[in-house]
Design a binder for these strands. Structure first.
Lengths: 308, 308
DNA sequence: TAAGGTTACGGCGATCGTAACGATC
DNA sequence: GATCGTTACGATCGCCGTAACCTTA
């Protein structure tokens, strides 16, 4: 058993159990990986993969159990590298942030700006994805940190931190009837609605809040992206239901924002990362920066509420 | 980085950072390990060990962090081997049981007998040690399962299972005054006592029970071993305070046993093993056997109480 | 001076790449 | 026949062992 065999098994999973692709990914010829796999299997004494003819079709029960250990090894190996690099220069490295459009555009700019100033040597990669994918990105080691709003399932492998709470808001053109007057569930539900796609940015909160009242929203447009929603609100298609922090005081002057905290329960945005994943110092500081920014935004939200 | 380097670092720890000894343990010449260590350190970019001259004196901060990952890798590697062996033949293998003399002699015979019948191909190694050492044996991978009575510290790395509860008993020669009449804390404390060494078999329970009453026992002999205690009780040195199940109805006919459950709180014997340690099927069954035997012994204890 | 660690160098074996072959869709 | 995997064989590179050297109790 050796580490390249471990790596091979990992790569095989990533490539859908395709030896040729795995070989390519590992920069060796295909025959090499074929042999290594055989060697490993014969060392263990039984096959790790089910085969139809010569093709690998699935993991054997043994394979599944072994894979769990394999990924523990791969993780620890990666951690060693990261820890060492961190000791060499804790201002140099990369951080992969998995998040949604809304967070990336309306929440992250401030903390990322501050982070950049402290760690100019760290490359920041933003991975935009749907909320369900965010957690997968962590497990697949595509991302180090995920920032997500929809409920993080009670995943034993993850550490989650509270980042900030926020409410939804309605945005309408200035002449729109909803620009003035009290807003109730009924009144809101009487307009055509533009909001987030299922699974995005607290959509489930909106859904359940109205369902509880026996109402159904007439969602005529759903997008993953606040800006898309605003665009169509400006065209007069209806009422935009967006995250409160996605209203920009300056850029969105032409729209009227109405707080909906009395209609839709608050959403909670969390930070998540893998428990066994070693985060370099700068990543830990990045998370602190996020939490700090979260607290500040909470204070601002408080002010907003008073103002409205 | 490769697995033999991982192994080397482990071995170095075991040998007290002695390259020569590590080389011997790994069946390679000393120059080989010297080179491998250098290669690994230079790959990481900074040293893992503090050095005085050429000798390794200590781990660097980096080294300490890396070591934690190293042992995760070593553990996972071991697990892979065990899992594979388990699939090949789940009736073959070894189990290392760390426990104390009292458990080994008075509790384990029944479950081990039954286990042997089901798994004749499994070699059983009993490691006798003091209770503090038992847990260490798990961490050092000298033992797979520990059976211990003294409180298992809340060790995050361990899984513990309740095995059985028991009480202490007093044993005296037949003519001894304590062979008859009520037994109180005061009366018991008026005799010279023979019992377990500190840290063994519920000694702490005895200690605290009498301390609470403002009494101090006159322990004239302390041993790790119930049989030693009995031997000196027979010689008339005093009253033996032993674990209830360590009284043998037949072999100890010449001694009178007196239940002390009203004087000394019950002790709890637990089974412990490492969380990340894969236990082969037969080990899991062995643990079940222990728990079963524990429940039976509890029933017996119940009968004993009625009888006395 | 003994014990522990490093450096230099030659030899051996594990693993790779090339290439030809086999199987499956 | 295109894709995917296996087998055979020669070449290479990594790693070990021998041995001489260095350094500190």
């Amino acid at each position: 058993m050796n580490l390249s065999q471990i790596e091979l098994l990992q790569t095989l999973q990533e490539t859908g159990l395709n030896l040729s692709k795995a070989a390519e990914k590992m920069h060796v010829v295909q025959s090499a990986v074929s042999r290594q796999l055989q060697l490993f299997e014969s060392e263990l004494g039984s096959p790790l993969f089910e085969r139809r003819g010569k093709k690998l079709t699935d993991l054997t029960p043994l394979g599944k159990r072994v894979m769990a250990e394999i990924s523990a090894i791969a993780q620890a190996k990666q951690n060693i590298k990261t820890i060492a690099a961190d000791f060499l220069d804790s201002n140099q490295g990369t951080i992969h942030i998995a998040t949604t459009h809304t967070q990336a555009k309306y929440f992250l700019p401030v903390p990322i700006q501050r982070f950049r100033e402290k760690y100019p040597g760290v490359r920041i990669y933003m991975l935009q994805a749907s909320p369900e994918q965010l957690i997968d990105q962590l497990h697949n080691h595509k991302a180090d940190v995920a920032i997500c709003t929809e409920k993080v399932t009670d995943d034993e492998m993850l550490i989650t931190k509270h980042c900030y709470e926020w409410h939804h808001a309605a945005v309408v053109p200035q002449q729109h009837p909803l620009a003035t007057g009290e807003i109730s569930h009924d009144r809101l539900a009487s307009f055509p609605i533009l909001t987030y796609s299922f699974g995005y940015t607290g959509r489930s909160m909106i859904e359940s809040a109205f369902k509880e009242k026996g109402l159904e929203l007439d969602v005529i447009l759903a997008a993953a992206d606040t800006d898309v929603i605003k665009t169509y609100v400006r065209l007069g298609l209806g009422v935009g239901l967006i995250a409160g922090m996605a209203y920009d005081q300056i850029a969105d002057q032409d729209l009227v924002v109405r707080d909906l905290s009395h209609l839709i329960p608050r959403s909670i945005t969390k930070i998540a990362y893998l428990k066994q994943h070693y985060l370099p110092l700068y990543s830990q500081h990045f998370i602190e920066e996020l939490i700090l920014a979260g607290q500040e935004s909470l204070e601002n939200t408080g002010k907003n509420h008073k103002r409205q």
